[in-house]
């Protein structure tokens, strides 16, 4: 089975993330980048499907050259090869354009199954799987906490407020997975060494038939109109218990409309 996993390098969620005042895009240079945590589950699921059913796992990322670290990590975990789409013209692309660019890459790699994390921890739109399926004209089975492959059928389970949905589709398909689905493995030492020799394809926009005007900040359908820094965290309030600690806490929670 030809499995493609879309991964994204994002700023470390443990650091303070900022937008650039110049073009309202994320300042990726100011902080350490790492693989979107939610994508680790997608990579793990792909590896498990490959281990059970055979095939090949290709990592696909769109991002600046530093995203090579994220590709390396996924290859260290056990993926077979990667495609790194990187071009300055892609900078500032919104979800619509990103899904378009990824569609073009998938035309080059082919696929039976495309797996994504549920969302990225930076943009958090969570729409890429749906957009991609729509563009590719294949089924979307999203937010899976369980995936089963049976021949050319994929069955997933999705947690809901009332229980869970079971959804079935024919391959090829696009699936997005949630963090409950598995426990991502650590790369092994051998995996890290082997990753260095695994092929990473780096097509140009021209290779993919993408016109630079179709992507990037200028042509985005969505625009960040304005942004402001989050207010500094207010100092905590310490309640000293003088026999009335419980009611003071209840009053506080009521004032914040928690109770």
């Amino acid at each position: 089975m030809n499995i493609v996993v879309c991964v994204k390098q994002v700023p470390d969620t443990a650091t303070e993330r900022k937008l650039k005042s110049s073009d309202s895009t994320l300042d990726r240079e100011a902080v350490d980048g790492l693989m979107n945590e939610l994508d680790e589950y997608a990579v793990e699921e792909a590896l498990r499907i490959k281990e059970a059913h055979g095939g090949e796992v290709t990592i696909l990322t769109m991002g600046p050259s530093t995203a090579a670290d994220t590709i390396r990590k996924a290859l260290s975990m056990g993926a077979d090869k990667a495609v790194h789409l990187s071009d300055d013209a892609l900078h500032g692309s919104d979800s619509l354009q990103t899904s378009f660019a990824i569609q073009q890459v998938l035309g080059r790699t082919g696929f039976d199954l495309v797996i994504l994390g549920s969302e990225s921890t930076d943009a958090r739109t969570g729409v890429l799987a749906a957009m991609l399926a729509e563009r590719l004209g294949v089924s979307q089975v999203t937010l899976a906490n369980k995936v089963e492959i049976d021949g050319s059928t994929i069955r997933i389970q999705r947690q809901t407020d009332y229980g869970f949905d079971r959804v079935e589709a024919s391959l090829p398909a696009v699936v997005s997975v949630v963090e409950k689905i598995n426990e991502p493995r650590y790369p092994s030492f051998k995996g890290i060494m082997a990753a260095k020799k695994k092929p990473v394809d780096a097509p140009s926009l021209a290779d993919l038939g993408i016109d630079a005007a179709q992507v990037g900040l200028a042509g985005s359908a969505t625009t960040v109109v304005d942004f402001a820094e989050a207010p500094p965290r207010a100092k905590g309030q310490i309640v000293t218990d003088e026999g009335d600690g419980g009611s003071k806490i209840a009053d506080f929670l009521a004032s914040k409309k928690f109770v």
């Binding site: 493995r185 650590y186 790369p187 092994s188 030492f189 051998k190 995996g191």
Partner: peptide, 20 residues
């Protein structure tokens, strides 16, 4: 088991016999 899977339990032995 985790250290073993990660390749940390046989580091000073040759790769030909499963080491690091």
């Amino acid at each position: 088991r985790l250290l073993g899977r990660s390749g940390l339990l046989g580091l000073p032995y040759p790769e030909s016999c499963g080491g690091g």
